[in-house]
Design a protein around this nucleic acid. Structure first.
Lengths: 221, 221
DNA sequence: GAGAGTTTTGACAGAGTGTCAATAACTGGA
DNA sequence: TCCAGTTATTGACACTCTGTCAAAACTCTC
Protein backbone atom coordinates (compact mmCIF):
# COMPACT_ATOMS: atom_id res chain seq x y z
CA UNK A 1 0.00 0.00 0.00
CA UNK A 2 0.93 3.59 -0.41
CA UNK A 3 0.62 4.20 3.32
CA UNK A 4 3.24 1.63 4.07
CA UNK A 5 5.56 2.97 1.42
CA UNK A 6 5.19 6.44 2.86
CA UNK A 7 6.01 5.25 6.32
CA UNK A 8 9.02 3.40 4.95
CA UNK A 9 10.29 6.57 3.37
CA UNK A 10 9.67 8.51 6.55
CA UNK A 11 11.53 6.00 8.67
CA UNK A 12 14.35 5.97 6.20
CA UNK A 13 14.57 9.73 6.57
CA UNK A 14 14.49 9.40 10.34
CA UNK A 15 17.31 6.84 10.33
CA UNK A 16 19.32 9.18 8.17
CA UNK A 17 18.73 12.00 10.61
CA UNK A 18 19.66 9.74 13.51
CA UNK A 19 22.95 8.93 11.85
CA UNK A 20 23.72 12.60 11.25
CA UNK A 21 22.82 13.29 14.88
CA UNK A 22 25.21 10.57 15.96
CA UNK A 23 27.94 11.95 13.73
CA UNK A 24 27.45 15.43 15.13
CA UNK A 25 27.44 14.21 18.69
CA UNK A 26 30.44 11.94 18.22
CA UNK A 27 32.50 14.56 16.43
CA UNK A 28 31.87 17.08 19.18
CA UNK A 29 34.15 14.97 21.35
CA UNK A 30 37.10 14.52 19.03
CA UNK A 31 36.66 16.68 15.95
CA UNK A 32 35.97 15.59 12.41
CA UNK A 33 39.47 14.37 11.64
CA UNK A 34 39.52 11.76 14.37
CA UNK A 35 35.90 10.79 13.76
CA UNK A 36 35.54 7.21 12.59
CA UNK A 37 32.56 5.51 11.02
CA UNK A 38 32.85 2.94 13.77
CA UNK A 39 32.37 5.60 16.41
CA UNK A 40 29.36 7.05 14.60
CA UNK A 41 27.84 3.60 14.31
CA UNK A 42 28.40 2.91 17.99
CA UNK A 43 26.86 6.24 18.96
CA UNK A 44 23.85 5.54 16.78
CA UNK A 45 23.78 1.94 18.02
CA UNK A 46 23.82 0.58 14.50
CA UNK A 47 26.21 -1.56 12.58
CA UNK A 48 28.91 0.24 10.69
CA UNK A 49 27.83 -1.36 7.42
CA UNK A 50 24.45 0.29 7.63
CA UNK A 51 25.96 3.74 7.45
CA UNK A 52 27.09 2.96 3.94
CA UNK A 53 23.51 2.29 2.94
CA UNK A 54 22.59 5.83 3.88
CA UNK A 55 25.81 7.58 2.92
CA UNK A 56 28.14 6.91 0.06
CA UNK A 57 31.22 7.31 2.22
CA UNK A 58 32.58 9.25 5.13
CA UNK A 59 32.91 12.56 3.32
CA UNK A 60 29.31 12.22 2.16
CA UNK A 61 28.34 12.05 5.82
CA UNK A 62 30.44 15.10 6.62
CA UNK A 63 28.77 16.97 3.77
CA UNK A 64 25.45 16.08 5.34
CA UNK A 65 26.69 17.87 8.46
CA UNK A 66 27.70 20.84 6.32
CA UNK A 67 24.23 20.85 4.82
CA UNK A 68 22.79 21.00 8.29
CA UNK A 69 25.08 23.91 9.05
CA UNK A 70 23.89 25.78 5.98
CA UNK A 71 20.27 25.14 6.85
CA UNK A 72 20.86 26.51 10.34
CA UNK A 73 22.58 29.57 8.91
CA UNK A 74 19.75 30.22 6.54
CA UNK A 75 17.38 30.22 9.48
CA UNK A 76 19.54 32.56 11.50
CA UNK A 77 20.09 34.87 8.56
CA UNK A 78 16.38 35.08 7.91
CA UNK A 79 15.87 36.09 11.52
CA UNK A 80 18.49 38.79 11.08
CA UNK A 81 16.67 40.11 8.04
CA UNK A 82 13.47 40.41 10.07
CA UNK A 83 14.98 42.00 13.16
CA UNK A 84 16.89 44.82 11.47
CA UNK A 85 15.55 47.91 9.73
CA UNK A 86 18.16 48.78 7.12
CA UNK A 87 19.78 46.41 4.66
CA UNK A 88 23.22 47.27 5.98
CA UNK A 89 22.19 46.41 9.52
CA UNK A 90 20.72 43.16 8.26
CA UNK A 91 24.00 42.21 6.61
CA UNK A 92 26.00 43.24 9.65
CA UNK A 93 23.76 41.18 11.88
CA UNK A 94 24.23 38.20 9.58
CA UNK A 95 27.96 38.55 10.04
CA UNK A 96 27.50 38.42 13.77
CA UNK A 97 25.15 35.48 13.45
CA UNK A 98 27.74 33.60 11.44
CA UNK A 99 30.30 34.18 14.17
CA UNK A 100 27.89 33.11 16.91
CA UNK A 101 27.06 29.98 14.97
CA UNK A 102 30.71 29.06 14.60
CA UNK A 103 31.15 29.41 18.33
CA UNK A 104 27.99 27.60 19.35
CA UNK A 105 28.36 24.77 16.86
CA UNK A 106 32.07 24.38 16.20
CA UNK A 107 31.57 20.92 14.78
CA UNK A 108 29.03 22.04 12.21
CA UNK A 109 31.24 24.96 11.34
CA UNK A 110 34.16 22.61 10.86
CA UNK A 111 32.06 20.51 8.52
CA UNK A 112 31.11 23.62 6.61
CA UNK A 113 34.74 24.67 6.35
CA UNK A 114 35.54 21.29 4.87
CA UNK A 115 32.83 21.68 2.32
CA UNK A 116 34.27 25.06 1.37
CA UNK A 117 37.67 23.48 1.05
CA UNK A 118 36.49 20.66 -1.18
CA UNK A 119 36.37 21.05 -4.92
CA UNK A 120 33.94 18.72 -6.61
CA UNK A 121 35.90 17.02 -9.36
CA UNK A 122 33.14 16.43 -11.84
CA UNK A 123 30.58 18.90 -13.10
CA UNK A 124 27.69 17.70 -10.99
CA UNK A 125 28.20 16.84 -7.37
CA UNK A 126 26.21 13.95 -5.96
CA UNK A 127 24.57 13.08 -2.66
CA UNK A 128 24.95 15.39 0.29
CA UNK A 129 27.43 17.65 -1.49
CA UNK A 130 24.84 18.53 -4.10
CA UNK A 131 22.46 19.38 -1.28
CA UNK A 132 25.12 21.69 0.15
CA UNK A 133 25.40 23.57 -3.12
CA UNK A 134 21.64 23.94 -3.08
CA UNK A 135 21.55 25.10 0.53
CA UNK A 136 24.42 27.46 -0.08
CA UNK A 137 22.41 29.05 -2.81
CA UNK A 138 19.46 29.52 -0.48
CA UNK A 139 21.68 31.28 2.04
CA UNK A 140 22.89 33.61 -0.68
CA UNK A 141 19.32 34.37 -1.64
CA UNK A 142 18.71 35.68 1.87
CA UNK A 143 21.87 37.76 1.73
CA UNK A 144 21.05 39.11 -1.70
CA UNK A 145 17.65 40.21 -0.49
CA UNK A 146 19.33 42.16 2.32
CA UNK A 147 21.80 43.74 -0.08
CA UNK A 148 19.03 44.74 -2.43
CA UNK A 149 17.09 46.21 0.48
CA UNK A 150 20.19 48.10 1.59
CA UNK A 151 20.71 49.62 -1.82
CA UNK A 152 17.05 50.62 -1.94
CA UNK A 153 17.01 52.20 1.53
CA UNK A 154 20.32 53.94 0.91
CA UNK A 155 22.29 52.25 3.69
CA UNK A 156 24.40 50.47 1.08
CA UNK A 157 25.99 52.40 -1.78
CA UNK A 158 24.25 51.94 -5.12
CA UNK A 159 27.43 51.10 -7.02
CA UNK A 160 28.45 48.34 -4.64
CA UNK A 161 28.32 45.78 -7.44
CA UNK A 162 26.10 42.93 -8.59
CA UNK A 163 24.32 41.63 -5.46
CA UNK A 164 25.23 38.04 -6.17
CA UNK A 165 28.89 38.95 -6.44
CA UNK A 166 28.74 41.10 -3.31
CA UNK A 167 27.04 38.28 -1.42
CA UNK A 168 29.65 35.71 -2.40
CA UNK A 169 32.44 38.12 -1.60
CA UNK A 170 31.07 38.89 1.83
CA UNK A 171 30.63 35.20 2.46
CA UNK A 172 34.27 34.61 1.58
CA UNK A 173 35.40 37.52 3.75
CA UNK A 174 33.47 36.40 6.78
CA UNK A 175 34.21 32.74 6.39
CA UNK A 176 37.90 33.47 6.06
CA UNK A 177 38.08 35.62 9.15
CA UNK A 178 35.91 33.36 11.28
CA UNK A 179 37.92 30.32 10.28
CA UNK A 180 41.05 32.19 11.23
CA UNK A 181 39.55 33.18 14.56
CA UNK A 182 38.27 29.66 15.19
CA UNK A 183 41.47 27.78 14.46
CA UNK A 184 44.13 30.24 15.47
CA UNK A 185 42.75 31.70 18.66
CA UNK A 186 45.71 30.67 20.78
CA UNK A 187 48.24 31.65 18.14
CA UNK A 188 46.63 35.08 17.82
CA UNK A 189 46.59 35.45 21.56
CA UNK A 190 50.34 35.02 21.44
CA UNK A 191 50.46 38.21 19.34
CA UNK A 192 48.16 39.97 21.75
CA UNK A 193 45.17 39.72 19.44
CA UNK A 194 41.83 38.66 20.85
CA UNK A 195 39.48 36.76 18.59
CA UNK A 196 36.69 39.15 19.46
CA UNK A 197 38.58 42.27 18.46
CA UNK A 198 39.65 40.60 15.22
CA UNK A 199 36.03 39.99 14.39
CA UNK A 200 34.99 43.53 15.28
CA UNK A 201 37.75 44.81 12.99
CA UNK A 202 36.53 42.57 10.19
CA UNK A 203 32.97 43.76 10.67
CA UNK A 204 34.03 47.39 10.65
CA UNK A 205 36.01 46.93 7.46
CA UNK A 206 33.29 44.95 5.74
CA UNK A 207 30.79 47.65 6.65
CA UNK A 208 33.07 50.32 5.24
CA UNK A 209 33.26 48.41 1.97
CA UNK A 210 29.49 48.53 1.62
CA UNK A 211 28.50 51.93 2.89
CA UNK A 212 28.18 54.97 0.66
CA UNK A 213 31.30 57.22 0.64
CA UNK A 214 29.66 60.48 1.72
CA UNK A 215 27.67 58.88 4.49
CA UNK A 216 30.09 58.62 7.38
CA UNK A 217 28.68 56.98 10.47
CA UNK A 218 31.61 56.74 12.83
CA UNK A 219 29.55 55.84 15.87
CA UNK A 220 29.48 52.12 15.18
CA UNK A 221 29.97 50.01 18.33
CA UNK B 1 85.35 16.88 13.39
CA UNK B 2 83.20 19.92 13.12
CA UNK B 3 83.50 19.98 9.34
CA UNK B 4 82.03 16.54 9.07
CA UNK B 5 79.26 17.37 11.47
CA UNK B 6 78.41 20.41 9.40
CA UNK B 7 78.27 18.40 6.22
CA UNK B 8 76.04 15.87 7.95
CA UNK B 9 73.63 18.58 8.96
CA UNK B 10 73.67 20.02 5.46
CA UNK B 11 72.92 16.66 3.89
CA UNK B 12 70.17 16.06 6.36
CA UNK B 13 68.66 19.37 5.32
CA UNK B 14 68.99 18.40 1.67
CA UNK B 15 67.25 15.07 2.23
CA UNK B 16 64.45 16.91 3.96
CA UNK B 17 64.13 19.28 1.04
CA UNK B 18 64.14 16.35 -1.39
CA UNK B 19 61.27 14.76 0.49
CA UNK B 20 59.26 17.97 0.43
CA UNK B 21 60.00 18.29 -3.29
CA UNK B 22 58.75 14.76 -3.79
CA UNK B 23 55.63 15.49 -1.79
CA UNK B 24 54.94 18.61 -3.80
CA UNK B 25 55.50 16.86 -7.08
CA UNK B 26 53.47 13.81 -6.13
CA UNK B 27 50.57 15.82 -4.79
CA UNK B 28 50.39 17.86 -7.97
CA UNK B 29 49.06 14.75 -9.65
CA UNK B 30 46.36 13.72 -7.21
CA UNK B 31 45.88 16.40 -4.60
CA UNK B 32 46.77 16.27 -0.92
CA UNK B 33 43.89 14.07 0.13
CA UNK B 34 44.86 11.18 -2.08
CA UNK B 35 48.55 11.63 -1.41
CA UNK B 36 50.09 8.66 0.37
CA UNK B 37 53.40 8.40 2.14
CA UNK B 38 54.12 5.44 -0.08
CA UNK B 39 53.74 7.60 -3.17
CA UNK B 40 56.00 10.30 -1.73
CA UNK B 41 58.62 7.70 -0.85
CA UNK B 42 58.47 6.20 -4.32
CA UNK B 43 58.81 9.65 -5.91
CA UNK B 44 61.80 10.43 -3.71
CA UNK B 45 63.18 6.91 -4.25
CA UNK B 46 63.45 6.29 -0.55
CA UNK B 47 61.88 3.81 1.78
CA UNK B 48 58.65 4.87 3.39
CA UNK B 49 60.07 4.38 6.85
CA UNK B 50 62.69 7.03 6.26
CA UNK B 51 60.07 9.70 5.83
CA UNK B 52 59.13 9.21 9.45
CA UNK B 53 62.68 10.04 10.46
CA UNK B 54 62.36 13.45 8.87
CA UNK B 55 58.68 14.12 9.57
CA UNK B 56 56.62 13.20 12.55
CA UNK B 57 53.68 12.10 10.44
CA UNK B 58 51.86 12.90 7.26
CA UNK B 59 50.35 16.15 8.46
CA UNK B 60 53.78 17.31 9.56
CA UNK B 61 54.90 16.84 5.97
CA UNK B 62 51.90 18.78 4.70
CA UNK B 63 52.71 21.59 7.12
CA UNK B 64 56.20 21.65 5.64
CA UNK B 65 54.52 22.31 2.29
CA UNK B 66 52.47 25.08 3.88
CA UNK B 67 55.65 26.57 5.26
CA UNK B 68 57.08 26.58 1.77
CA UNK B 69 53.95 28.34 0.57
CA UNK B 70 54.30 31.02 3.22
CA UNK B 71 57.96 31.55 2.38
CA UNK B 72 57.04 31.97 -1.28
CA UNK B 73 54.31 34.43 -0.38
CA UNK B 74 56.66 36.46 1.77
CA UNK B 75 58.98 36.77 -1.22
CA UNK B 76 56.20 37.82 -3.54
CA UNK B 77 54.77 40.27 -1.04
CA UNK B 78 58.17 41.88 -0.55
CA UNK B 79 58.40 42.34 -4.31
CA UNK B 80 55.00 44.00 -4.28
CA UNK B 81 56.14 46.39 -1.57
CA UNK B 82 59.09 47.42 -3.73
CA UNK B 83 57.22 47.80 -7.00
CA UNK B 84 54.40 50.06 -5.76
CA UNK B 85 54.54 53.64 -4.65
CA UNK B 86 51.69 54.00 -2.16
CA UNK B 87 50.93 51.71 0.72
CA UNK B 88 47.45 51.05 -0.61
CA UNK B 89 48.83 50.00 -3.98
CA UNK B 90 51.28 47.72 -2.21
CA UNK B 91 48.49 46.00 -0.32
CA UNK B 92 46.37 45.73 -3.43
CA UNK B 93 49.26 44.21 -5.31
CA UNK B 94 49.78 41.71 -2.52
CA UNK B 95 46.18 40.65 -2.91
CA UNK B 96 46.77 40.03 -6.58
CA UNK B 97 50.00 38.20 -5.80
CA UNK B 98 48.14 35.92 -3.42
CA UNK B 99 45.64 35.07 -6.12
CA UNK B 100 48.37 34.45 -8.70
CA UNK B 101 50.17 32.21 -6.27
CA UNK B 102 47.06 30.15 -5.61
CA UNK B 103 46.66 29.64 -9.35
CA UNK B 104 50.30 28.92 -10.12
CA UNK B 105 50.85 26.60 -7.16
CA UNK B 106 47.49 25.08 -6.33
CA UNK B 107 49.11 22.32 -4.34
CA UNK B 108 51.02 24.68 -2.07
CA UNK B 109 47.90 26.75 -1.68
CA UNK B 110 45.96 23.65 -0.70
CA UNK B 111 48.58 22.87 1.92
CA UNK B 112 48.32 26.41 3.21
CA UNK B 113 44.55 26.16 3.38
CA UNK B 114 44.92 23.02 5.48
CA UNK B 115 47.23 24.78 7.84
CA UNK B 116 44.69 27.57 8.20
CA UNK B 117 42.03 25.01 8.91
CA UNK B 118 44.04 23.21 11.56
CA UNK B 119 43.90 24.27 15.17
CA UNK B 120 46.93 23.28 17.18
CA UNK B 121 45.56 21.51 20.23
CA UNK B 122 48.26 22.34 22.70
CA UNK B 123 49.73 25.71 23.43
CA UNK B 124 52.94 25.26 21.51
CA UNK B 125 52.90 23.67 18.10
CA UNK B 126 55.82 21.44 17.18
CA UNK B 127 57.77 20.63 14.04
CA UNK B 128 56.72 22.10 10.73
CA UNK B 129 53.55 23.62 12.15
CA UNK B 130 55.59 25.80 14.48
CA UNK B 131 57.62 26.90 11.48
CA UNK B 132 54.38 27.86 9.74
CA UNK B 133 53.36 30.08 12.62
CA UNK B 134 56.75 31.73 12.42
CA UNK B 135 56.55 32.19 8.64
CA UNK B 136 53.01 33.46 8.91
CA UNK B 137 54.23 36.12 11.25
CA UNK B 138 56.93 37.16 8.78
CA UNK B 139 54.33 37.56 6.07
CA UNK B 140 52.28 39.77 8.36
CA UNK B 141 55.33 41.91 9.05
CA UNK B 142 55.56 42.68 5.35
CA UNK B 143 51.87 43.51 5.21
CA UNK B 144 52.06 45.66 8.32
CA UNK B 145 54.91 47.65 6.82
CA UNK B 146 52.75 48.35 3.77
CA UNK B 147 49.79 49.37 5.92
CA UNK B 148 51.97 51.69 7.98
CA UNK B 149 53.38 53.19 4.79
CA UNK B 150 49.86 53.66 3.47
CA UNK B 151 48.72 55.46 6.56
CA UNK B 152 51.77 57.70 6.39
CA UNK B 153 51.40 58.54 2.69
CA UNK B 154 47.67 59.10 3.09
CA UNK B 155 46.51 56.37 0.71
CA UNK B 156 45.07 54.44 3.66
CA UNK B 157 42.81 56.16 6.20
CA UNK B 158 44.47 56.96 9.48
CA UNK B 159 41.71 55.42 11.60
CA UNK B 160 41.82 52.09 9.78
CA UNK B 161 42.73 50.29 13.00
CA UNK B 162 45.76 48.64 14.57
CA UNK B 163 48.00 47.51 11.68
CA UNK B 164 48.38 44.01 13.04
CA UNK B 165 44.62 43.63 13.25
CA UNK B 166 44.13 45.10 9.79
CA UNK B 167 46.74 42.77 8.38
CA UNK B 168 45.17 39.65 9.87
CA UNK B 169 41.73 40.76 8.76
CA UNK B 170 42.87 41.35 5.20
CA UNK B 171 44.59 37.99 5.20
CA UNK B 172 41.37 36.34 6.31
CA UNK B 173 39.35 38.24 3.69
CA UNK B 174 41.64 37.32 0.85
CA UNK B 175 42.23 33.77 1.91
CA UNK B 176 38.51 33.20 2.21
CA UNK B 177 37.69 34.58 -1.20
CA UNK B 178 40.57 32.88 -2.97
CA UNK B 179 39.72 29.56 -1.37
CA UNK B 180 36.16 30.02 -2.54
CA UNK B 181 37.32 30.86 -6.03
CA UNK B 182 39.76 27.96 -6.08
CA UNK B 183 37.41 25.24 -4.94
CA UNK B 184 34.10 26.38 -6.26
CA UNK B 185 34.97 27.67 -9.71
CA UNK B 186 32.63 25.31 -11.51
CA UNK B 187 29.84 25.80 -8.98
CA UNK B 188 30.14 29.57 -9.32
CA UNK B 189 30.17 29.26 -13.09
CA UNK B 190 26.79 27.58 -12.77
CA UNK B 191 25.51 30.83 -11.25
CA UNK B 192 27.12 32.83 -14.01
CA UNK B 193 29.94 34.07 -11.79
CA UNK B 194 33.48 34.01 -13.12
CA UNK B 195 36.29 33.49 -10.64
CA UNK B 196 38.10 36.50 -12.01
CA UNK B 197 35.19 38.90 -11.51
CA UNK B 198 34.67 37.54 -7.99
CA UNK B 199 38.24 38.39 -7.17
CA UNK B 200 38.00 41.86 -8.71
CA UNK B 201 34.92 42.48 -6.61
CA UNK B 202 36.75 41.34 -3.50
CA UNK B 203 39.68 43.58 -4.28
CA UNK B 204 37.42 46.56 -4.89
CA UNK B 205 35.62 46.02 -1.61
CA UNK B 206 38.81 45.45 0.36
CA UNK B 207 40.23 48.64 -1.10
CA UNK B 208 37.12 50.54 -0.12
CA UNK B 209 37.50 49.30 3.44
CA UNK B 210 40.97 50.81 3.64
CA UNK B 211 40.75 54.06 1.75
CA UNK B 212 39.90 57.36 3.39
CA UNK B 213 36.19 58.33 3.08
CA UNK B 214 36.66 61.70 1.34
CA UNK B 215 39.19 60.39 -1.12
CA UNK B 216 37.16 58.73 -3.85
CA UNK B 217 39.16 57.13 -6.63
CA UNK B 218 36.61 55.42 -8.81
CA UNK B 219 38.96 54.78 -11.71
CA UNK B 220 40.43 51.58 -10.34
CA UNK B 221 40.75 48.92 -13.03
C1' DG C 1 2.84 -19.70 7.60
C1' DA C 2 5.02 -19.19 2.83
C1' DG C 3 6.91 -16.02 -0.16
C1' DA C 4 8.59 -11.36 -1.81
C1' DG C 5 10.75 -7.29 -0.57
C1' DT C 6 13.42 -4.53 2.59
C1' DT C 7 16.55 -3.60 6.35
C1' DT C 8 20.42 -4.85 9.00
C1' DT C 9 24.58 -7.22 10.06
C1' DG C 10 29.08 -10.05 10.57
C1' DA C 11 32.90 -11.03 8.23
C1' DC C 12 36.26 -10.04 4.69
C1' DA C 13 39.78 -7.93 1.74
C1' DG C 14 42.43 -4.01 0.89
C1' DA C 15 44.83 0.27 1.74
C1' DG C 16 47.40 3.12 4.54
C1' DT C 17 49.73 4.43 8.80
C1' DG C 18 53.35 4.50 12.16
C1' DT C 19 57.01 1.63 14.66
C1' DC C 20 61.10 -1.18 15.44
C1' DA C 21 64.71 -4.30 15.30
C1' DA C 22 68.02 -5.26 11.97
C1' DT C 23 71.02 -3.99 8.27
C1' DA C 24 73.99 -0.90 5.56
C1' DA C 25 76.99 3.05 5.25
C1' DC C 26 80.10 6.02 6.91
C1' DT C 27 83.80 7.81 10.21
C1' DG C 28 87.85 8.01 13.01
C1' DG C 29 91.35 5.67 15.34
C1' DA C 30 94.59 1.37 16.09
C1' DT D 1 93.39 -2.65 6.57
C1' DC D 2 90.40 -3.76 10.13
C1' DC D 3 87.60 -2.62 14.00
C1' DA D 4 84.36 -0.38 16.91
C1' DG D 5 81.07 3.52 17.21
C1' DT D 6 77.84 6.34 15.21
C1' DT D 7 74.40 7.51 11.86
C1' DA D 8 71.31 6.51 7.92
C1' DT D 9 68.25 3.39 5.87
C1' DT D 10 65.22 -0.42 5.34
C1' DG D 11 61.92 -4.66 5.44
C1' DA D 12 58.56 -6.42 7.96
C1' DC D 13 55.05 -6.11 11.41
C1' DA D 14 50.90 -4.72 13.99
C1' DC D 15 47.27 -1.88 13.89
C1' DT D 16 43.34 1.03 12.39
C1' DC D 17 40.07 2.30 9.24
C1' DT D 18 37.57 1.87 5.11
C1' DG D 19 34.17 0.09 1.90
C1' DT D 20 31.79 -4.26 0.16
C1' DC D 21 29.04 -8.48 0.07
C1' DA D 22 26.48 -12.43 0.92
C1' DA D 23 23.68 -13.84 4.31
C1' DA D 24 20.52 -13.19 8.23
C1' DA D 25 16.56 -10.82 10.34
C1' DC D 26 12.66 -8.39 9.87
C1' DT D 27 8.13 -6.70 7.66
C1' DC D 28 4.32 -6.95 4.88
C1' DT D 29 0.93 -9.44 1.91
C1' DC D 30 -1.76 -13.09 0.84
Amino acid sequence: MNLVADRRIEEKERRRTEIIDAAESASRQVGLDALTMDEVARTARLSRALLYVYFKDKSDLVFALADRALAALQGRFSDCAKSQATGLDQIREMGRAYLSFSQECPTLFEALARFELHSPAVEHATGAEAACVQSGDSVHQVMIAAIDAGVRDGSIRADVGPPMLVSITLWGFMHGVIQLAATKTNVLAHDGVAAQSLFEQALAMATRSLVAPEKNESNNE
